[in-house]
Design a binder for these strands. Structure first.
Lengths: 159, 159
DNA sequence: CCTCGGTTGTTGACATGTGAATCATACGCG
DNA sequence: CGCGTATGATTCACATGTCAACAACCGAGG
């Protein structure tokens, strides 16, 4: 084991296996929970995130850029998504009084109902698929590991 | 705390925070590593996965369905992706001798070179972005947690 | 007032993903 | 052999994501 005395530039087999287990499993779990959300409520993960932000916003409405920043999406991504959500009657876009460039994104009553109907089933899915799979210690370890990764990527401070 | 004596149907705040930390961080880390791969080698994560499977396959070729099963993709997804990869000269599709319905997906020399040129930078990225963020204990914990989730979803046995 | 740089939101071109429908072929069975 | 069904792969319509270019508008300075 000549190598073991030097700083490795690449992962060991063990480390690589941990990487694959982590990244593949997280994808599968995310997909599973989003599928449940869609079956239960007809909402995608993106829909849910937009509706959550709007339902907590003042007057159930936000400026588009503000919303994009809040949920950390590209503006063009939000624009396209809002178009689809508007077609389905979940949100409405209206011109903005203070700034004629912008528009206000407003949660419709229908969107509000859809969101509120979705939260309980969604939380149940998170519980059943994710939380119930793990011991409390494992949950804590996951939080720690996630925090360590974010620190490593400097996602906590200046961003 | 009336509730704490009953089996909760939904996550606690702590559990929900762990869920969000886990799922959001895994997305960010995946995106970061795929971005590195793309900068370094011009390959997407999907490209890499296909090329890895083909480069390990007998004769650097596989039947399309076999490949789809191996990397756990929908066949339609693979079909579309292969179309794009074929346009870029990374793979070639040729009719299959034994079964006229099927086709063999063959790794081209160009695809083989692209893949081999990409592995070292990719592994370095995994090391720097993921492995180096964590202690050995945290890596083990991640593996355990991933294994527990897969067991919970019955992804190990009958699928 | 008017120009100019920055902001806001949309659009276009594309890559990527899912599910249903389709088409050709393969294969078991009478 | 010939029929019915299963299978291999693609295609379609659509949702979702990125990035760059754009049009309209704001606001500061001359």
């Amino acid at each position: 084991m000549e190598n073991s005395r030097r700083r490795r530039p690449v992962p060991t087999h063990e480390e690589l296996a941990a990487w694959r287990a982590f990244i593949e499993t997280s994808e599968i779990v995310r997909a599973r929970i989003e599928a449940r959300l869609h079956e239960d409520s007809g909402l995608s993960g993106g829909d849910y995130r937009v509706l959550l932000a709007l339902s907590e916003a003042d007057g159930r409405a936000m400026r588009s850029s503000e919303l994009a920043a809040h949920i950390e999406w590209e503006r063009s991504r939000l624009s396209g998504h809002l178009g689809r959500m508007e077609r389905r009657g979940l949100v409405r876009r209206e011109p903005c009084a203070e700034d004629a460039r912008g528009s206000r994104v407003v949660l419709t009553d229908s969107g509000d109902r859809a969101f509120h109907a979705s939260t309980l089933p969604h939380l149940r899915a998170v519980k059943e698929v994710f939380v119930d799979a793990l011991t409390p210690e494992q949950l804590d370890h996951l939080r720690d590991a996630a925090a360590a990764m974010r620190r490593h990527l400097r996602l906590d401070d200046g961003h």
